[in-house]
């Protein structure tokens, strides 16, 4: 084998390994999709069916209550499908996670800049305190939080959840953005200062665009974290402001485990994050390799 063939063989092995890994990673999504589009019978058949007639009923049931088998006339009474809470919950998820992600990323970028560039008294202690907000599992602070939220009238409001998630993501955003700013050579700002710009202008004209890559990466992580967050949403909301993730889980209890229903709901939940990540994904990869970028 010459050098060229060897490299080709190596590439082929890499491709095989990647495909195998991809199969493992994508299998749950396939399973979710198949369960969502199968009838109950098909979903539980053993061995699993690889070919089935897809049907959209589970998806409809996500959006309407009183659907399922009971649609049409039951004992002479017309059963009208009623819109379910899912749309509202999805709306809550979207509003809460996007707003808190934007807030956390923006605030994180500003404070990350300050922590990286300016002399802050007790900088290390402050950074530690910020990080420590992430050290306790949510359950530990759950009871005081719920009591505080009730007292402040934030319980079961989107605003309350937004505050919670912003704070929650801020720790991550500050640390992440600080290390991104650390990687931007300080000479750029100094060059801008010397060139006649104020510190503020230097930040917005130069550092801010350079930080964009880092901000996108931070935003994607924050969004995924918020979107999938379960505990706080379950604890701090009731009917009105609850997000989609705990709601789907909630449907476990009510009428036996309707796996098709859950799969359909979960599948719908995955879509926005996937779209968002794909749209900004190029930036994310650049974000990971940011340290390697030279001027």
């Amino acid at each position: 084998m010459n050098e060229f063939q060897r490299r080709q063989a190596k590439n082929r092995i890499i491709v095989v390994v990647l495909v195998a890994m991809l199969c493992v990673y994508l299998f749950p999504i396939y399973w979710m999709f198949s369960t969502a589009t199968k009838t109950k019978l098909d979903a539980f058949s053993l061995p699993p069916k690889w070919v089935w007639r897809p049907q959209a009923e589970n998806f409809r049931n996500v959006f309407y209550v009183g659907g399922g088998g009971a649609l049409g006339k039951v004992k002479g009474v017309e059963v009208k499908p009623k819109p379910s809470a899912f749309l509202r919950q999805l709306g809550n998820s979207i509003v809460v996670s996007f707003v808190s992600t934007i807030l956390a990323t923006f605030l994180g970028a500003l404070s990350g800049y300050v922590f990286s560039r300016m002399r802050v008294r007790g900088k290390d202690d402050l950074l530690f305190v910020i990080l420590s907000s992430r050290m306790l599992p949510p359950v530990v602070i759950a009871i005081p939080l719920v009591m505080m939220y009730r007292a402040l009238g934030l319980f079961d409001t989107r605003f309350g959840l937004i505050i919670m998630y912003t704070v929650f993501n801020l720790a991550f955003a500050v640390w992440m953005m600080r290390s991104f700013v650390d990687d931007i050579p300080i000479e750029y700002e100094e060059a801008a200062l010397v060139d006649g710009y104020s510190r503020f202008q230097a930040f917005f004209k130069f550092i801010f665009p350079e930080m964009r890559v880092g901000m996108v990466a931070t935003a994607i992580f924050s969004l995924i974290m918020t979107w999938n967050e379960f505990t706080f949403s379950l604890l701090l909301t009731g009917e009105k402001a609850r997000t989609a993730v705990p709601s789907i889980a909630h449907s476990l209890g009510t009428a036996g485990v309707n796996w098709g229903h859950i799969a359909a709901g979960s599948f719908l939940m995955v879509i926005p994050v996937v779209v968002f990540t794909f749209l900004l994904g190029g930036n994310l990869i650049r974000g990971f390799t940011f340290g390697a970028i030279k001027e």
Binding site: P185, E187, Y188, E190, A191, A192, L193, V194, D195, G196, Y197, S198, F206, P209, E210, I293, E295
Partner: peptide
Amino acid sequence: SPSARNIAFVFQLYALYPH
């Protein structure tokens, strides 16, 4: 401040704005 001094500074790594 540096911006008020009207000087030009060439940095060792040039510090050209990458974007």
